[in-house]
Amino acid sequence: MSGHLYASVLGLVQRKPPIVRVAALSGRYAPHAGDVIVGIVTDVQGSFWLLDIGAARWAPLHMTGTPWKIDFGETGEHLRVGDSVVVAVEQIENTGRIGVTMIGEGLGKLEGGTLVTVSPAKIPRVIGKGGSMIATLTHATGCKIVVGQNGRIWVDGPLEGVDRVRASLELIELEGQRRGLTERVAELLASSGRGGPGPAHPPPPDADAGDEGGVPVDSESFPEQ
């Protein structure tokens, strides 16, 4: 249309001739095959559960996609409404149906802990380049952290550590597009680190520069895939 390009969503323009991209600043989680995400059970049916994954639609998790041996009608004995699970997106069908599975390393039901939600657009910053941000957070607070690509982050550990992770995530959400983010988070962690397990490790100098994907799991409890 007359040589003009218009974005359909609110976002930041990235020009790398001949490619023009718009990175959306808001919006619901757009699922991609292979994403590891945190879902909350919203409905229990005879042979599957419906998960709220923060996307436009609920995602059905079929009982064959779990490590359990279940007979029809016994789904409620394993997962109930309100439970949280870590699942992987298998495929997006052309009807828009989002197929997820709980079979795989690092996937399964979440017991205990706290869920913190950030905008899915900020997830690359939460992980940091090569997982640097997550490493900083885990080290400074001694918490187990699982990051879902859909913006849901599960944190478990000492209460005070969980609070500090939550404050850090708030900062990331607020200033996700700023340089030097990992340093600022380390600063925040150090300033609120009363009797926490050791001082924050200084992050690599350009730790925040890229938005590396990477496997969003803490190395201790959920080994990398």
Partner: peptide
């Protein structure tokens, strides 16, 4: 209004976030 909403300056003091 949308530009104002998504601009980030000035930085939030760390103490305030904490």
């Amino acid at each position: 209004a949308l530009r104002d909403r998504y601009s980030v300056d000035p930085p939030t003091p760390v103490a305030e976030v904490a």
